[in-house]
Simulated scan of single mutants.
Amino acid sequence: MNICVFLSAADLHERYTGPAREFAGLLAKGGHTLVWGGSDAGLMKVVADAAQAAGGRLLGVSVDFLSHKARPDTDEMVVTKDLAERKAQMLARADAIVVMVGGTGTLDEATEILELKKHGLHTKPVVLLNTAGFYDGLKQQFRRMDEEGFLPLPLTDLVFFAEDGVSALAYLEEVAGIR
Rank of each mutant, 00 (worst) to 15 (best):
E109L: 03
L128H: 02
L158Q: 01
Q141T: 07
Q89I: 02
K87S: 03
H119W: 13
D157F: 05
E109W: 08
E147N: 13
A84C: 08
G137Y: 07
N130M: 07
L151D: 07
V101H: 02
T106V: 08
L129D: 00
F160S: 04
G149H: 07
T131H: 06
L138N: 11
A132N: 15
R93L: 12
M90L: 12
K124T: 03
A92W: 09
M100F: 15
T111Q: 15
K117C: 08
V101P: 00
L155N: 14
L158H: 02
F134R: 03
T106W: 02
T156R: 15
H119L: 14
E109Y: 04
I113Q: 00
A88W: 10
Q140L: 11
F160I: 10
H119N: 05
F150M: 13
T104R: 09
H122P: 06
E147W: 09
G103Y: 10
G105S: 07
F161T: 01
Q89E: 14
L107N: 04
L155C: 07
L107S: 06
V98N: 00
E109V: 02
G105K: 10
V127K: 04
R86V: 01
P154M: 04
V159I: 15
L114V: 05
R86P: 08
L91Q: 05
A94I: 06
D146G: 03
Q89V: 08
G102R: 03
L83R: 04
L114I: 10
Q140E: 14
G105F: 05
V98R: 01
E148A: 12
G120L: 04
I113W: 00
Y135W: 15
R86T: 09
E85G: 08
D95H: 13
D95A: 12
A88M: 11
K139T: 08
M145C: 14
V98S: 01
L107V: 11
E147G: 10
R143Y: 09
P152M: 09
A132P: 02
D108H: 11
K124P: 02
V101I: 11
M90R: 07
V98K: 00
R143M: 10
G149W: 11
T104I: 14
I97M: 04
G102Y: 00
T106I: 12
G137L: 14
D157H: 15
T104G: 06
I113D: 00
V99H: 00
P125T: 12
M100A: 13
P125I: 12
R143A: 13
F161C: 10
G120S: 09
I113K: 03
G149C: 14
T104H: 08
M145Y: 12
D164K: 09
L153E: 09
G137K: 09
L158K: 08
Q141H: 11
L121D: 15
Q89W: 14
E109H: 07
G120H: 05
T131W: 01
L151H: 02
H122F: 15
D108W: 05
R86A: 08
D95Y: 07
V126M: 07
V159P: 03
E148L: 12
D108N: 14
F142Q: 00
L128Y: 00
A132V: 05
R86M: 05
P125V: 12
L138C: 11
H122M: 11
G102C: 14
G133L: 08
A132T: 14
Q140A: 13
V101F: 02
L155T: 01
P154K: 03
L138K: 10
P152N: 08
L114M: 14
E148F: 12
V159A: 01
E163C: 05
V99E: 04
R143T: 13
